[in-house]
Nucleic acid binder design. Structure first.
Lengths: 176, 176
DNA sequence: CGGTTGCGTTTCGAATTCGAAGCACCTTAC
DNA sequence: GTAAGGTGCTTCGAATTCGAAACGCAACCG
């Protein structure tokens, strides 16, 4: 009777499944922390900044703020802040969209590409050492397959821009 | 000629591996976001607070601040802040350690346990819907196996409390 | 056309986060 | 026994984060 213990048994769908879930989250947390260290030390970049830059480079073109924020799983306002920093550092450029006057298109600069390429080897090294090392090729293939499926499943859900902007005004009608 | 493209090819150990890595990180980011929403909505808890409470409940006893911080992969000072909030909310208790006068032992209260048990069903539901749903039992078993291995591999690395506190004074000597 | 609703972005204020520095206690060496 | 160094925790200041509100422009209705 020392005391309180959590009542997991009642809700747990399966201890094995929960174990997988916990191990997954814990491992990724650890990996993220190490990556953060490496990026900061080698390129003065935060994890988010790095992701923004790589996504821009991969898109090889312009992306709107919202697309970028949804891609990186980040708040829109947070992205505005980071974009400000990156622009001030000369790594990206912001400009208006020809199609949509209210949209902002973001582009990565040569300097940005150079920085990413400079940090990338070290980044990959960390991932290699911490994540790939203890896994076989088959493990990795299956892991990629499974996580891709999960990611697509989650992407099907409404993206981060889902929050209702204005409370349902009064009630029913509003029809006019 | 539009422009700059990232030079991944030169560093990439294998496109398939990188794909696994990216899918993994992206999926977990999405999952974390949804979990954050659910915890906040249903129990007024942040993800970290929830992890702290569940870890305490699982330990079924007292844990030191450092052990807790390392377990949750969090900064020590951040944990102090969160512990303050949780204590003020009456969910945990902090007290001195009998063995080590400088250590602080943290305990979860009945109220804390109750709150965790209240939020847990919804939490599990989210995980079920987003993570387990698209996976077969075999997928999950392998995923758990693989991620457990990875986690243990990373845990072997020096924990977060590794940062040298004071710069290495002289360097060589020390052989006494 | 004028009005209304909806979307893309930024601004704003409050809360959270981190590392470095500070303080107190333990441990070891002499 | 005491000085020197190491460890556990908190305080401090600065940077980052988020959601809500604000500000235009776009799209759709009559």
């Amino acid at each position: 009777m020392t005391g309180p213990l959590i009542d997991v048994g009642a809700h747990a769908p399966d201890p094995q499944r929960l174990g997988a879930y916990f191990a997954l989250m814990e491992a990724v947390s650890l990996l993220q922390h190490h990556i953060e260290q490496q990026l900061r030390a080698e390129g003065g970049l935060s994890s988010v900044q790095f992701q923004v830059l790589t996504r821009l480079a991969a898109a090889e073109g312009r992306l709107t703020m919202t697309a970028l924020a949804d891609g990186v799983v980040y708040s829109r306002s947070g992205l505005t802040y980071q974009a400000g920093l990156l622009e001030k550092a000369g790594l990206i450029t912001r400009g208006p969209s020809p199609d949509d006057e209210r949209a902002t298109l973001v582009t990565i600069t040569e300097k940005g590409v150079a920085l990413v390429n400079g940090v990338l080897p070290g980044h990959i090294q960390v991932v290699q050492r911490l994540l790939f090392e203890p896994l076989s090729d088959g493990d990795l293939r299956r892991l990629g397959d499974v996580m891709t499926r999960v990611r697509d499943h989650m992407r099907a859900q409404p993206p981060r821009s889902a929050a209702p902007r204005k409370r349902r005004a009064g009630g029913s009608g509003s029809a006019s």
